[in-house]
Simulated scan of single mutants.
Amino acid sequence: MPKKKVILKAQIPDNEKTDALMSPCLYINPDVEFKDIPTTGEEYLLKVMKERENYSQVTKCQQDISKFAKNQSCFVAELPRAYVADIFKPTIEWQNIQVADFSDVRMYISRIISKKSQWSNTIRKIEIEQDNLLGWKRFFKMNEPTLSCVLGLPYTLLDRALEILTDIIDDVPPGKTIDYKTGQWIYAFLACTRQPLLSDTTSILRNLARKCAEIRSHINPEQENSREAVAPLNIFICLVSRYFRQYDLAD
């Protein structure tokens, strides 16, 4: 019986021993004859290993790593958590109810979208310049936050709309809360937010939750209707943290 050839050697030659992590664990016996076209898995593996010898051990990344999402920087600085009075902290049971109700809304929207051919002709196509801040504010003021209105916007503008709304609530005076209509708009756009989340979308959602927490921190627990004032803020913080899984922002 002919002696079986040794194709792979696990031992590294003395002159090639190194502590580098890139050191290969298998070497090809120089006596092995390669076929132009592999016919077995073993021959294919040998061909790949042989071709790998023609490339350098370190490959330089050609991508420009300086390009990040437009609302994040190379070194993302996490803002400190805003103070929240114990009386304003929602219970986990309350948060679970909000998430469950929100999930039902999103499922309803998904069913509607799946039947787009039945209602697409009744939706008014809305065109608005992405960076026209006054145009967006006029849009939110002149229109009702209905599902038909939100679905009339192109997908590319959904994130931008939520970003504009987040900037709008930044003007809420200390001690005040989000007005009812703005809260409805925010909820509507959250309900239509696409998943899996893009990096830009995640950044917008996190910014929304932080600003809601900041607004809540300025509300006096002893003022009249303070619990009603923090309710929409708690809802948005809850949805961003619990539903969209930004758990580090959860109460």
Rank of each mutant, 00 (worst) to 15 (best):
M1R: 11
P2G: 08
A10F: 07
P13M: 04
K17W: 00
T18N: 07
A20N: 13
L21S: 10
M22K: 11
P24F: 04
C25N: 10
D31A: 14
V32R: 14
P38A: 08
T39Y: 02
E42I: 12
E42T: 15
L46I: 15
V48W: 04
K50V: 06
K50L: 12
N54S: 13
Y55W: 15
T59S: 11
S66W: 11
S66T: 15
S73Y: 05
A77V: 15
P80E: 08
R81L: 09
A82C: 10
Y83W: 09
Y83K: 15
Y83T: 03
V84F: 03
A85K: 13
A85L: 01
D86G: 14
I87R: 05
F88Q: 03
F88A: 02
P90V: 04
T91H: 09
T91P: 07
I97M: 01
V99M: 01
D101N: 09
D104Q: 11
M107V: 03
M107P: 01
Y108S: 11
I113A: 12
S114L: 09
K115T: 07
K116G: 05
S117M: 01
N121M: 03
T122W: 03
T122N: 09
I123S: 02
K125D: 05
I126M: 10
L134I: 10
K137V: 07
M142V: 13
E144S: 07
C149A: 14
C149R: 13
G152A: 06
G152P: 12
E163Q: 10
I164K: 12
T166H: 02
D167S: 09
I169E: 05
V172Y: 13
G175L: 05
K176S: 10
T182N: 00
I186K: 06
C192L: 05
R194P: 04
Q195I: 10
L198V: 03
S199N: 11
T201F: 05
T202M: 08
T202P: 01
L208P: 00
R210D: 01
C212M: 06
A213R: 15
H218K: 09
E222V: 01
E222Y: 11
N225E: 03
A229C: 09
L233S: 03
N234I: 01
F236I: 00
I237H: 00
C238Y: 00
S241F: 02
R245M: 01
R245I: 02
Q246C: 10
Y247V: 08
D248Y: 12
